[in-house]
Design a binder for these strands. Structure first.
Lengths: 266, 266
DNA sequence: GTCTCTTGTCCATAATATGGACAAGAACGC
DNA sequence: GCGTTCTTGTCCATATTATGGACAAGAGAC
């Protein structure tokens, strides 16, 4: 009963609405499955990433299959986002306002820089790649595709977005992602260090990108209320991004980020 | 305990997995919200359409808002599908296999017929328009857009899809949609009559389309296992679809439907 | 002002979702 | 073949959770 009281008073402060544990859990499962893209995710991995018990995850996943929200792949037995999710998504206008606003900037920066450009948004505790432009140089980093979803903090885009938010909030998100960092061979301390460095620099950077031998630079894009909503990233083979060129590229990205902020602000 | 037993034995027959009422209810709410598209749906309407109580719907909807799955529109207070749904949808390859398979047929039939063509899929108890081709004639029926979602049975596409499934299953779906038919000024008896007529004709037809003064013709497309998965529809002002032309158009649609079935079958 | 519509909240209670424990299947080694 | 170590799937007593009747508070209409 004390618990009830404290939950009640806390609600007005932040927002933990009670009476829907199961729904929240189902959504947590869906977000993990989304990170698995077309290939899906094995049950055990979902259990690990969500911290739920196996019977619970099993039950949730199978109900979602019955409902058409999740699919199971024949041979591998992995679970993936189902057909009905894009069907629900059709209810919304596509592309999003952000994508429309960012389009000219991506175009401009892409021709100017020549390497691959990404537009990445924040969604919950993840980053999600929503747009990509391939540059004109013969060697391009193509491994990150539209739809790629990662824990905030493991990519330069994630670091940039974390750097753009208040430090306590960033720390909370990083802590929440702790379990998922292992799969990317990083940890809370490393990520927080990169975030601090990005704040000092004014942009996110990873000398060692997620793909071997690549380097990435990301600037953040804030919504009018000051919350970071997205990041703009350039990825290239490391040798193409020495200190001098890093400076050049960062300046272009910073310029375009400000333009996009204007576009979504008006 | 008797209940448990019977539920258990029934499960092996059909599939009502227990322990996830809340999740199923949340999904039912989402599907109703999806029908409201960008404008959204007022709470009372969701209550009516789902048959749930108002406190329950209210709780579900607000938890989904906190999770980013649902949005609320400022002025109207209506609830709509949120940003995070298309974000989850990015986990899947787009466009779908059906759309790829149907593309050449839509192209061909569109130029041949000249009126607006729709590709509509079945999703649960709804029809959902997933593709549209505008014809070359100056008067076109454009009111049905990609993403439009309706109870199975109220459009000619829905009638066609119902006609293509076993009668008992069709009847079950129509019964389940009863409450939602009112908003479209139709009822169970009328719909079942149209379905029977469509079975006799070989295609679905509505002399009075959803839009005043229009007429629609739809053929069904079945998956290899015999289940109808989609419908192909032509809509035009009624005067352009007299008996002779109806025959012509139906033949083209039937021909293309068979081609699409081949494409998804192989 | 009152009436009628909507949306929002409370809380005792019934019903639901939970997870420990166990089982069964798959993949590998020897 | 048989043990070992993975994985996934199931059961069911239980406590936690979600439920909905009842009440309240806005927002319009007139």
């Amino acid at each position: 009963m004390d618990k009830r009281r404290s939950a009640k008073s806390a609600r007005s402060a932040v927002e933990p609405r009670q009476g829907a544990q199961a729904i929240r859990r189902a959504l947590a499962v869906l977000r993990i499955l989304a990170a698995g893209r077309e290939d899906g995710v094995p049950l055990a991995e979902v259990v690990r990433a969500t911290g739920l018990t196996r019977p619970t995850v099993h039950r949730i996943v199978h109900v979602l299959i019955e409902e058409g929200i999740v699919e199971r792949h024949g041979r591998s037995g992995r679970y993936a986002i189902g057909n009905q999710v894009p069907e629900l998504a059709l209810a919304r206008p596509r592309p999003s306002r952000l994508q429309i606003a960012a389009n000219p900037s991506l175009q401009r920066a892409s021709t100017e820089i020549g390497d691959t450009l990404f537009l990445t948004v924040r969604t919950g505790n993840d980053t999600l790649c929503v747009d990509r432009r391939i540059g004109i140089y013969p060697i391009q980093v193509l491994s990150i595709e539209i739809g790629a979803r990662r824990p905030l903090g493991v990519s330069s885009a994630g670091v940039a977005i974390l750097a753009a938010m208040p430090a306590p909030e960033a720390r909370k998100i990083v802590a929440a992602n702790e379990k998922r960092f292992e799969a990317y061979r990083t940890d809370v301390a490393t990520v927080l260090g990169e975030v601090t460095a990005a704040r000092r620099l004014g942009y996110g950077m990873r000398e060692i990108g997620l793909v071997q031998g690549t380097k990435s630079i990301s600037t953040w894009i804030k919504t009018p209320d000051g919350q970071p909503a997205a990041a703009m990233t350039v990825s290239a083979v490391r040798t193409r991004l020495g200190p001098r060129r890093e400076q050049e590229v960062a300046e272009i990205l910073l310029r375009e980020a400000r333009i996009i902020e204007q576009a979504i602000g008006g």
